[in-house]
Design a protein around this nucleic acid. Structure first.
Lengths: 210, 210
DNA sequence: ACCTGAACACCGTTCAAGT
DNA sequence: ACCTGAACACCGTTCAAGT
């Protein structure tokens, strides 16, 4: 069912994603994209419908890359970890475009397939049907938020390093930081941390309903 | 210790936030901001150091509004819910600027105070010290991600409504959606959902360590 | 149906100049 | 120290015109 128009649209979105990967999201302008495709800016409009439509298309383009992980077989725990790890890996492949995933709804069929896979995992693990949509939003929000925080530098040293921090405020003003002085790491292992977080969330789900 | 320069800086950031609240983040341009302050764009540079510095300043400005909730007394559970609710309420007050919280690190003293309050809650609730920074990132990532998803429309009907969804794909391709046909709500109560999510996270923390 | 090219109303940031 | 004003190299989108 993919006609010429759809193919052209995908071609444009691929170019836009490449542009973002190479030069950052700020470099994805209608003009730069058109010039990369050897065309006039206005030639893009029938296919992607303006800048907002382009960014929406990029979200669908990104989520489509999670399909393989979503259809992979295995027990519920394996599938949950597989989808979550794929979602975080995606952030490393496309760090500039990734934050768009939290900034607009995903409406394409491929996006719905990923949600369906998560619903299926949660049903299989024993979450009551009426709670499944809520728990899916909880887990997907955590996963997207974590990966977004990483690529955007929200966890980086400035906020994390107790030395930098404590320079600005007296220890009495930061009692918990002071109490934790011995364990505050300047550069945590985020791979291990993400795994521990997923394990905690799965623990919660199982304790509550399994 | 607040000199004239700091006061001017805060005045500029207040104006930028008001501009975002009234006309959206896209309307926060150096030129529009300068014009609102009756000054030339270049006059802003010594105070906020360009567009990126302005956005970083906005993040600190937003987090400063969480200080009252952070210093409020009470048992750990009350304080955790208080900070989390304040963080979500902040999104409703400043929906356009809010997503910046996930997009850049917070470095100002006020931001560190909020983290310290969360550390204190987690220590009081029984989380082992070496796990506190990780669990703080887990909880804060969920809270910021959830509120960001809400204001950005990631949870909105297009993605959620099973009718809209199922129109694009056959039921056989979405087995879990089909199984959940009776419980998929077109417009969930996000206030109640957020409360339930917080309760689940606190349940997890207590079950694991209390 | 699809694309062009000129035009309009904007951007962020530089630089040299003023006080 | 703080601000101005002109200039440079960009934006997204409109419109009328071409094929």
């Amino acid at each position: 069912m993919a006609d010429a128009h759809d193919n052209r649209r995908r071609q444009i979105l691929d170019s836009a994603l490449a542009l973002a990967d190479e030069h950052g999201l700020h470099a994805v302008s209608m003009r730069a994209l058109a010039s990369r495709l050897g065309v006039t800016p206005m030639a893009l409009y029938p296919h992607i419908g303006g800048k907002e439509g382009l960014l929406d298309g990029l979200v669908d383009r990104l989520l489509a890359e999670l399909i393989p992980a979503s259809v992979a077989p295995g027990d519920p725990q394996t599938r949950l970890f597989g989808i979550a790890r794929a979602a975080r890996t995606l952030a490393r492949s496309h760090p500039s475009a990734y934050p768009l995933l939290l900034s607009r709804p995903a409406v394409a069929p491929d996006a719905v397939r990923v949600v369906d896979a998560m619903y299926s995992v949660l049903l299989d693990v024993g979450v009551p049907p009426e709670q499944v949509p809520r728990v899916e939003r909880l887990v997907s929000t955590f996963v997207l938020g974590y990966a977004t925080s990483e690529v955007n530098g929200r966890f980086r040293a400035g906020t994390l390093n107790p030395m930098t921090r404590r320079g600005q405020l007296s220890p009495e003003e930061l009692p918990a930081h002071t109490a934790l002085a011995g364990v505050l790491e300047p550069a945590p292992d985020f791979d291990a941390e993400f795994e521990a977080d997923l394990a905690d969330l799965l623990f919660m789900i199982k304790q509550r309903w399994a």
